[in-house]
Design a protein around this nucleic acid. Sequence first.
RNA 1: GUCUUCGUAGCUCAGUUGGAUAGAGCGACCGCCUCCUAAGCGGUAGGCCGGCGGUUCGAAUCCGCCCGAGGACACCA
Length: 564
Amino acid sequence: MSKIELQATENLKSAITAAMRSGMEKGLLPKAEIPDFIVEVPADLSHGDRAANAAMISAKAFHMAPRKIAETIKQELDLGGTYFDRCEIAGPGFMNFFFGPRFYVDVVKEVLAAGPLYGRSNWGKKEKVMVEYVSANPTGPMHMGNARGGALGDCLASVLDAAGFDVTREFYVNDAGNQILKFGHSLGARYLQIYKGEDAVEFPEDGYHGDDIKDRAAEFAKVNGDKYVDVSAEEREKALVDYALPRNITKMKADLEKYRIVYDSWFLESTLHNDGELDEAIQILKDRGMTYEKDGALWYRATANGAEKDEVLVRGNGTPTYFAADIAYHRNKFLKRGFQRVIDVWGADHHGHVARMKGAMDAIGLDGSKLDVILIQLVRLVRGGEVVRMSKRTGKAIGLADLLDEVPVDAARFYFNLREATSQMDFDLDLAVKQDSQNPVYYVQYAHARICSLLKNLAADGIQPRKCTDEELALLTAPEEKDLIRHLSICTSEIIASARDYDPARMMRYLITLATLFHKFYTACRVKGEGKSLTAARLDLCMAAKTVLNNILSMFKITAPESM
RNA sequence: GUCUUCGUAGCUCAGUUGGAUAGAGCGACCGCCUCCUAAGCGGUAGGCCGGCGGUUCGAAUCCGCCCGAGGACACCA
């Protein structure tokens, strides 16, 4: 658990508050409530390491000019218990603070002491949170939306874990309901076509037209021969679904594992139908007066929770809708399994579903505000500056498996997390495989490889990293060294911010900046061949940078190569 | 039409609950390896923050209207 940077800010805040109180007691400032001011990292670092707006924000309450207030605070300020050793007043009344040498020494020591745990915190207080993502339809292969959702959901789960949440990753398998019937019809038609000819059997208009359906039907025929040709459609389709579905799910698991996504649980929708939870959920809504019957269907009074129109729970033909199952599913997450917070990663096309799911949670007696939905915007694949829709090889839409054939997993995971979920993005296939500085994946990995190479080089001369004394670490005073250390220090708060905003892309930006600062340090400061103490101190700094690079890359399941 | 995500450098995007001269990467141009990986570093050029109003000491950020792009509005999932 890293504390120094958070502590530095907190202590400074207390010191400023104390200075204002002292000013009031001496009659230098009017006795008034101290407004809630902030201490932040200034946009322009040349201004200082931290900036406080205390003077400006108090101007109204104190009826004093901000600069005058700032002067008084500065005069009364005791920085003794903080990591700061200097304060400057600037602009309209900003107070800028500068770290003293002890800060830099302590950060390097802290990173090295914490090692793989550096950056982790208890911010989430072990709250039980579920991240559900991908949850692709098991009737066919996964598409690009699943690829982006997979990278984002998986990395978000990691970020939450690092920020101190108790995280469970889940895949919801839609192995029941309408689309499974459709799946069965499609398989049935393809199976019969094998024995009766393509023209003799009509393929359902709304069926799944993909080749994967043909392939599964053919596999099934190879195993079972024609013995399902003359049985009832129901029996035939059940046998086909029972054969194909587990194989599709196994294939999805395999594809996702290639993508380095491993779930804690695969939740089958069918269990909700089979164990009565679905009926239970519908019954509760009935009991609460949230339903009515119309045109032979059972409706949910969504309009009671502000929705524009009501929704069907059970169709006229007696089968429940996806929506009904989803209510039961989310009730299961919250109530049966005790998740305190549930995050769903969905495609942007589901956005109409968000408000009514939250409303339904309230309607069923749970708290809809504990359900957060991240809507992933569209991905366009681009090659040679042009949008590509179809795979050249298969002629079909490019899927997750196709993408991973073409692009390294490292690049895919990196790229999909480079942008916020809410922004539409272009995935440049040319860039993702390019092995040069245009490609941020390599840029970051190169920083790690450079450190490893440096270590090898020094080891050949018999120099190993060792624990430096405070005096030795205090030699790290070059601007490039201080910039790098300062960036290392904010790792924990960046992870927390990332978790708070559900924005793993923030960590990718942190990582790129970290690489930049290391490369600058590397160019400006030599490690090898300096004095013994300075070499040792710089080596420690390299180890600290390597540690943080490693921690974040492994958090995102991107490899950190020893050499490139 | 209603809802929703957006609009910032040539391109792709940052910009943290309103703050200091609006940033980065790529692309363009110019430099830097007798020295730990040049997959790197430095420099130059490039902006009416979509537009118009409003709130504020202060707006890329908040509010309203307009313009433009993507997505959603099923007894589908």
